[in-house]
Design a protein around this nucleic acid. Sequence first.
DNA 1: CCTACCGATCGGTAGG
DNA 2: CCTACCGATCGGTAGG
Lengths: 211, 211
Amino acid sequence: MARGRASGYESQRELILAQAAALFARQGYAGTSMNEVAKASGISKPALYHYVRDKQELAATIAQEHVARLEAVVHDVGRLKLDPEPRLRELILRFVAEYAHAQDAHRVLTEDVRYLDAEERARVLGAERRVVDAFADAVAAVRPGASAAALDKPLAMLLFGMINWMFTWIKPEGRLSYDDMAPVVCDLFFGGVGAVQLSQSGRRAHSTIVA
Amino acid sequence: MARGRASGYESQRELILAQAAALFARQGYAGTSMNEVAKASGISKPALYHYVRDKQELAATIAQEHVARLEAVVHDVGRLKLDPEPRLRELILRFVAEYAHAQDAHRVLTEDVRYLDAEERARVLGAERRVVDAFADAVAAVRPGASAAALDKPLAMLLFGMINWMFTWIKPEGRLSYDDMAPVVCDLFFGGVGAVQLSQSGRRAHSTIVA
DNA sequence: CCTACCGATCGGTAGG
DNA sequence: CCTACCGATCGGTAGG
């Protein structure tokens, strides 16, 4: 669609998307004005509208491209034909690496998708669901014979919780990086998933032990 | 809507705070107007400003009161003088229970604190830091003799990740509740924390995080 | 007539 | 406690 454009058009648009992602991540979608996006991109607001249709297209594109990369990671790892544990470990390591160099887009994906209209939100959430399902399958594979298969997806979500939450407390200037934490997440999950399998085999047995 | 006399001031204010928390949680702080808060509270906008100084006070109060409850939980559990593992388990169960009946306030705490001015943000983040430190201490206590004490706080943050992320995927109408997941989180963490201790011993002794 | 913009301003709405 | 407004800024677009 952009084939006829000048060669600089796509690179300018990519710069705009990067600047918008940074602003949305820091200030939120609703808390960021198109004037700020234009200023950060070094162009006027009318010029900005030469590259993007409207504000929502910015968030939609940022989220869509990011979740598409996550789907690509899932696909790539699937083609490696690894055993269950190496496969899940590979997924975790690659996702953390992906987040590490796309922190802004990831925050837009997790916080700003609610501002998209129904159709675009459905597209993004559909891709997210496929990623979650892939993780749930990988979790199921490392829990052979588990009687509580209903916990595969919740366990995958706990895994996502650990790695998605990392962007709130890992600071670029700190000495602990995303890559340092990825193996810790793996060890914690692989070490603990067996205990969940055992204690949850009789459903909800523990829910009111202490309270 | 029924409104009392002078004694009704506080209850009206509490209704406003609850409505604001629900709107902020759903739409974000910047994406919510004071007109919406007034309408949801069944009063006019000028009337709303009779109960609150400005928009920021709403978010500050919601976040401050919520984190104060979390600090109270930490304090209450501390007075029980439990052994390390029951203590951390009790903290997890009570935090999940607290989140379950304050989901809106919790989302404001985790997403909208960035919109507060420096002073109020510092107050909230200070309270959050004390809560995190208490969890890190509880984590340290279940890792006796661990040579990688620098991982106590990161492990506490992974724990927070699991339980803080729950609000994004546990739906009220869903099959799994917060209370169902709390023991799963406990089992996963207690089962896995030993594996982390082994594989991470000797790594990055002076790692620090900025929380 | 195209592109790549500009200074200025549109109709509405924000917090107050 | 309402109507009536303000200075400013919102997302988006006019003419040139």
